[in-house]
Lab assay of single mutants.
Amino acid sequence: MDTYKLILNGKTLKGETTTEAVDAATAEKVFKHYANEHGVHGHWTYDPETKTFTSTE
Rank of each mutant, 00 (worst) to 15 (best):
M1C: 12
M1Q: 08
M1T: 11
M1F: 12
M1K: 13
T3R: 09
T3N: 05
T3Y: 06
Y4S: 03
Y4D: 02
Y4W: 04
Y4H: 03
Y4Q: 02
Y4F: 09
Y4P: 02
K5H: 11
K5W: 09
L6V: 03
L6C: 09
I7M: 05
I7F: 06
L8V: 08
L8D: 01
N9I: 15
N9K: 10
N9F: 11
N9H: 10
G10L: 08
G10M: 07
K11D: 09
K11Y: 11
K11Q: 12
T12A: 10
T12S: 11
T12C: 15
T12E: 10
T12N: 13
T12Y: 14
L13F: 15
L13S: 09
L13P: 03
L13Q: 08
L13H: 14
K14W: 11
K14L: 07
K14G: 06
K14I: 10
K14S: 11
G15A: 15
G15V: 15
G15L: 15
G15N: 10
G15E: 12
G15S: 14
G15D: 11
E16K: 07
E16P: 03
E16Q: 10
E16H: 09
E16W: 14
E16N: 06
T17G: 04
T18I: 08
T18V: 08
T18A: 06
T18C: 11
T18G: 03
T19A: 07
T19F: 12
T19W: 07
T19E: 03
E20V: 14
E20I: 13
A21F: 04
A21D: 01
V22G: 09
V22M: 12
D23W: 02
D23K: 02
A24N: 04
A24F: 13
A25N: 08
A25K: 11
T26M: 11
T26A: 14
T26F: 07
T26N: 08
T26D: 10
T26E: 13
T26H: 13
A27K: 01
A27V: 01
A27C: 02
A27N: 00
A27G: 01
E28C: 15
E28D: 04
E28T: 03
E28L: 15
K29P: 01
K29T: 09
V30P: 00
V30A: 09
V30D: 05
V30L: 11
F31V: 00
F31L: 07
F31M: 03
F31K: 00
F31N: 00
K32Y: 06
H33S: 13
H33K: 15
H33R: 14
A35D: 01
A35N: 02
A35I: 06
A35F: 04
A35Y: 03
N36R: 14
N36H: 14
E37V: 13
E37F: 11
H38S: 07
H38L: 15
G39P: 01
G39W: 07
H41F: 15
H41G: 09
H41S: 11
H41R: 11
G42T: 04
G42I: 07
G42Q: 03
H43P: 06
H43D: 14
H43S: 13
H43L: 14
W44T: 03
W44P: 00
W44C: 03
T45M: 08
Y46K: 00
Y46R: 00
Y46Q: 00
Y46V: 00
D47F: 06
D47L: 04
D47S: 07
D47K: 04
D47G: 01
D47E: 09
P48A: 12
P48M: 07
P48K: 08
E49K: 12
E49N: 11
E49G: 11
E49W: 11
E49F: 11
E49A: 13
E49T: 12
E49C: 11
T50W: 05
T50Q: 06
T50I: 06
T50C: 04
T50D: 04
K51Q: 05
T52D: 00
T52I: 07
F53A: 00
T54E: 06
S55Q: 08
S55I: 15
T56S: 09
T56E: 10
E57C: 05
E57M: 05
E57I: 05
